[in-house]
């Protein structure tokens, strides 16, 4: 095992273990923090695999933005800070979750182990540089990129519209009930 291999293994173990803690923890805030660790470790994995821009985006978007959002959401929904046993679904559902998780992971792992076995590659570090990625996006992936901006815009509009207060509460005189929209 070479140095990069060892590093990769360590980061992978960290990512998997903290991911597992993030979905099994009984304190919501801890779960969010374990998610940060897991996603951060993944950024490391990307770096080792030669995808530096991806690693950067991972840190910026996920660790920076998404996790903050999640933590805000946890606070806004008055999630309990102390350990709670009401975070997990009922037993039957949990059993189904274990089965589904293991089988999805198992199938993927089985397929990949069969396909990759002891395949090794030389990491092309320069490939994932910002310059190359930028050129690739604007030369080859322009259409999905532009479409992505529409998606983001629409998600933004939707999130804002959804987050506004109920119109019926705001203007009680002018309601939608004529059309049965709001009970």
């Amino acid at each position: 095992m070479s140095g990069p291999d060892l590093l990769l293994t360590a980061l992978a173990l960290l990512a998997a273990a903290s991911g597992l803690l993030a979905v099994t923890g009984s304190r919501v805030v801890h779960c969010a923090l374990w998610l940060v660790v897991s996603l951060g470790a993944l950024a490391g994995v990307y770096l080792v695999l030669g995808a530096e821009v991806v690693a950067l985006v991972q840190l910026l978007v996920y660790v920076g933005a998404v996790v903050v959002l999640v933590i805000f959401a946890l606070m806004l929904t008055r999630a309990p800070v102390e350990p709670s046993d009401r975070l997990d679904a009922p037993k039957g559902q949990k059993l189904a979750a274990v089965v589904a998780g293991i089988s999805v992971g198992g199938i993927l792992a089985g397929t990949l182990i069969y396909a990759l076995q002891d395949l090794t590659v030389k990491v092309q570090g320069e490939q994932g540089s910002a310059r190359n990625i930028g050129r690739a996006v604007f030369s080859g992936w322009l259409l999905p990129f532009e479409l992505l901006s529409v998606l983001l815009l629409a998600a933004l509009v939707a999130a804002i519209a959804v987050s506004r207060h109920l119109p019926a509460e705001k203007r009680p005189g002018q309601s939608l009930t004529e059309d049965g929209g709001v009970q």
Partner: peptide, 9 residues
């Protein structure tokens, strides 16, 4: 219909 208030969205 319902939601006519949120026309823009």
């Amino acid at each position: 219909g319902p939601g006519a208030e949120d026309r823009t969205a």
